[in-house]
Amino acid sequence: MTTKKIWFVTGASKGLGLTLVQQLLTAGYAVAATSRNVEELKRAVPLKTDQFLPLAMDLGNEDSVRQAIETTISTLGGLDVVVNNAGYGQIGALEELSDQEARNNFEVNVFGMLNVIRYATPHLRQQGSGRVFNISSIGGISGDFPGWGVYCATKFAVAGLTESYAAEVKPFGVYATVVYPGYFRTEFLSAGSVGKPQTPIDAYQAVRDSQTAHEQQINGNQPGDPQKAMELLIQVSESENPPVHLLLGADAYQLAGQKMATLQHDMQQWQEAATATAFVEA
């Protein structure tokens, strides 16, 4: 019998997902890790052990997701912690992005995550325990980033669905957490992880400035240490009562604080008029 939890991590060939898988294996956990390109994953984690199960998985294909979950349970002997980490960024003003560009981002960041939840939850529910971490972004709390509207929309969706999911599965002993990383020094802002608008519009200077800043100034200089972030995630996974909301990074806390201050200001500005909208009974 294993004494440590069995993990299932999506988007594991790079970034926070890869860092997490490496730390879990070092700590002696059993890990099923998925990627669109399993050979890339095997190169990134060349470890040969029966505790590591690299899997090719297409998030957009329900059969592929179901098979990955079933293979994890049959090969490693169970499933305890799910980390929905796979996703990518999409830059572009809302007017610039085509319907397909927007939908593609939602297909991976939201509907792919839902596919994993749909097939992992029956097992967690029936065994009466489990942890699910859905990786959002500080862009899932604050959308005040020109050119990141569709990406932020996907991450707001991740936050909302996780809140509801947490309420749904808590009676079964399953805990769900939405994770909001700030800027961490991974490949997230590199070309392979960020989509650019196919038909940019010259008028959106603020969007171009934001795009340039993320690609040239922020990329490679992010303040967050991925190792420390994933150490904390593992620590939270072992806590008796994990939070529904987990912010990662001082910058995430700062931006969330700014959002809450803005929300409070806007609420107070219109509170008297907005709360006087009920029916007046005769």
Rank of each mutant, 00 (worst) to 15 (best):
M1N: 14
T2K: 10
K4P: 07
G11L: 01
T26D: 05
T34H: 05
V38W: 12
R43N: 15
T49V: 06
M57Y: 13
D58H: 15
L59Y: 11
D63M: 03
R66W: 07
Q67V: 00
T75W: 08
T75M: 09
T75I: 09
L79R: 05
A86L: 06
Y88C: 03
Y88L: 01
I91Q: 09
S98P: 04
E107R: 02
N109I: 04
G112I: 03
G112H: 05
Y119M: 02
H123R: 06
Q127M: 01
S129Y: 14
R131G: 14
G149N: 14
Y151E: 09
T154G: 05
A157M: 12
A159S: 14
A159Y: 09
T162A: 14
A167K: 12
V169T: 09
P171C: 03
G173E: 07
Y175H: 15
V179T: 04
F184I: 06
A191D: 15
G195S: 11
P197G: 13
P197Y: 10
Q205R: 07
T212M: 07
H214G: 11
G224L: 09
A229C: 06
E231L: 15
I234Q: 14
S239A: 03
P242S: 02
P243N: 11
V244N: 06
D251M: 01
A256Q: 07
Q269M: 13
Q271I: 13
E281N: 06
A282Y: 13
